[in-house]
Computed example of a mutant assay.
Amino acid sequence: MACVTDMDLDPSTMRKQYRSEIVLEDGLDEDPMRQFALWFRQAADSHLFEPNAMVVSTADAAGRPSSRTVLLKQFDARGFVFYTNYGSRKGREIDANPQVSLLFPWHPIARQVIVTGTAARVGRDETAAYFRSRPHGSQLGAWASEQSRVIPSRAELDRRYAELAARYPEGEQVPVPTEWGGIRVAPDEVEFWQGHENRLHDRLHYVRAGSGWRIERLCP
C-alpha cells in the first residue's frame, strides 16, 4: 500500500539541534525526588505551558498499553500524585496492573523525566482535601463525567452538568464522588534526559538499590 504523506510536511526532515549544558553524575542529587524538584522548578521558571503535564501510560491485565496526558498535583518522597475517576480506563487498568510509567515532556528546554513505578490509591482524606480545593465547576465536572464511558452526545454531558449546577449552586459544598480520587505512583526507576547536539543526549537513570538509589548513565 502506498504511503500517503503531505509533501510539504515531511516528518523525516524535522530536526532540531539541542544546545544545552552537559549533565554530569556528580552534579545530581543522590535522591531522584529532590532532583525532580530541582528540574521541576527550572521548568516552571522557564514559563513552560503546564510544566506539571505528564503522560501516564498503563496496561491492562493482557498487557495492552494506553496513554493519556494528566496533570501532576503533588509530589514528595512517597511519589507522584494525580487525580482521576477510578472507573476510567486508566483507573481500571491500574486496578488490574499497578505498574505505571510517567513522562514529563519538557520539549522547550530539551528535557524529559521518565518515571517507572507502582500505582496505588491515596487515602480518602487526602482525596477530599484536594477535591475541596478545586474550582466549583471542576467539582461538578467530576460528577457529570463517567470518564472513559460511552456517552450519546455532548448535549447529554451538558445536561448532566446543568442538573448538578442547579443542585449544588456556587457556594454550596459539593460531596466528594466515591469513584473519584488520587493515584500515587511510587517510583522504582527515574530517568533524567537532557538533549544535546548530534543526538549525544544525557540519560541519567536512578534505580532503587536497597534503601537508596543507584545512578547509572545510559547511552542515548
Rank of each mutant, 00 (worst) to 15 (best):
F192L: 02
A43M: 09
L103H: 08
H107K: 10
Y161V: 09
V207R: 15
G141K: 06
L24G: 11
R121I: 00
T127I: 00
M33P: 05
E21P: 07
L24H: 12
R124Q: 10
P220T: 00
R121K: 14
R132E: 12
Y168D: 11
L71G: 04
R111I: 07
W39K: 04
L9D: 10
R208V: 04
N198H: 14
A2D: 07
A142I: 03
T127M: 06
R124W: 12
Y86M: 05
P51C: 12
S138N: 13
V122M: 09
Q42D: 14
G141H: 07
Q35M: 13
Y206T: 01
A53S: 15
E30H: 11
A37F: 00
S12F: 14
M33I: 15
A53I: 00
T118G: 03
L204R: 02
V115S: 03
G210Y: 10
S133Y: 05
Q42P: 04
G212W: 12
D188T: 06
V55A: 15
L218P: 07
M14V: 13
S138E: 15
A155Q: 15
A110R: 05
G63N: 03
D29W: 08
Y18D: 09
V55G: 03
R64F: 11
R64I: 12
L102T: 10
L102A: 04
R154T: 00
E93I: 06
N97T: 10
M7S: 10
T178M: 08
Q194T: 09
A155G: 08
V70H: 00
D60E: 10
R124M: 02
V4D: 03
R134S: 04
V113F: 00
H196K: 03
A166H: 06
G141W: 02
P187N: 09
E197K: 05
R184M: 03
C3E: 10
T69A: 14
F80C: 01
V185Y: 01
R68W: 05
W39S: 04
G212M: 11
L48R: 08
E30C: 04
G27F: 09
V55E: 05
E197Q: 10
Q74H: 15
G79D: 02
F40C: 00
C3A: 03
P98N: 09
E172K: 15
P32T: 07
R34P: 01
P105G: 13
T118Q: 07
R34M: 08
